[in-house]
Nucleic acid binder design. Structure first.
Lengths: 153, 153
DNA sequence: GATCAATACTTGACCTGTCAACTATTGATC
DNA sequence: GATCAATAGTTGACAGGTCAAGTATTGATC
């Protein structure tokens, strides 16, 4: 392996796009890992479960599998399994849809709401320390605008 | 479940921090999924393998397991398994360290370099279309600055 | 009202990465 | 130079998710 061959390609990969994306992915992966650990330790749920509780809760307490899959950026199969476990843990219940028997709802339980509240405070604390606290309000606004644009694409 | 109990907590979770973070995670998860699919289809490697090849390549062609773990935000165990498979595929070889027998290097092979080059072009294309292309240069600069700050924290 | 593509979800087989316990090696300290 | 904490990596058991094939149901079309 000659150094020449490497630097040749390295110049392609020094491209701003590749570099910026790598940095962003790495930063969020690290953050998510830390937040996940903290939520598990203090509340006994993963950050994925928290995100699910959050979405269900603020959508009126009930969501279909497909809605969840779309909002959590998971596949339908993944959601089925996740909701099964959350139901076992008593945080949600499955409910049939009266008008369309293909549809299955995940509905948050009182225990789910309690866990959601508890976890929100812990997570909020983490977020303020390690996410929003690391940037100016202007920077935050830009990040949100950009990410929202990408998400909807 | 009363609606009151839900809106009560929803107000906590309407917090900017929780919302912004959720949007960012969702956006990057979606992007990463699309990029991964494209790289698999066109080059036969995952985006994780690409990120590994990229790091090894631009670090002179060789990195230790620990260096990789740190830069790819994975655990040591995960890296061991990943490099095992990449070695099976002929993209890297494992090499012992002459000065410290605990250390194991992953060194990129000519086939690895070729794959890296091939994948770079595909990925760059995706990134320009769906990542950097979705924002102004100023926005991109802000995102990179912020993410870099978070990453190093 | 029978047909059939589309939709909503579930399931089995599998992949990727985690965690915690382990081995091997190193370097500092006595 | 023996001891021992620290470091680097590997491994078994498992968690969490994917994918593709499956079932059940729906709605449009003839």
């Amino acid at each position: 392996m000659t150094t020449d061959a490497l630097t040749d390609i390295a110049s392609v990969c020094d491209d701003t796009a590749i570099h910026s994306y790598g940095v962003a992915v790495e930063a969020l992966a690290r953050l998510n890992r830390r937040f996940d650990r903290r939520l598990r330790e203090e509340c006994g749920i993963s950050i994925s479960w928290f995100e699910a509780l959050l979405r269900i809760g603020r959508t009126g307490g009930s969501m279909t599998m497909s809605q969840l899959a779309s909002q959590l950026a998971l596949t339908n199969g993944g959601i089925t399994r996740m909701i099964d476990k959350m139901a076992e843990a008593g945080l949600v219940v499955r409910e049939a849809c009266a008008h369309d028997r293909r549809v299955s709802y995940a509905t948050i339980t009182p225990a789910g709401v309690a866990k959601w509240r508890e976890a929100s405070l812990v997570h909020l604390d983490d977020l303020r320390a390690e996410f929003t606290g690391q940037m100016t309000p202007e920077e935050l606004a830009t990040v949100v605008t950009v990410m929202d644009r990408i998400r909807q694409d």
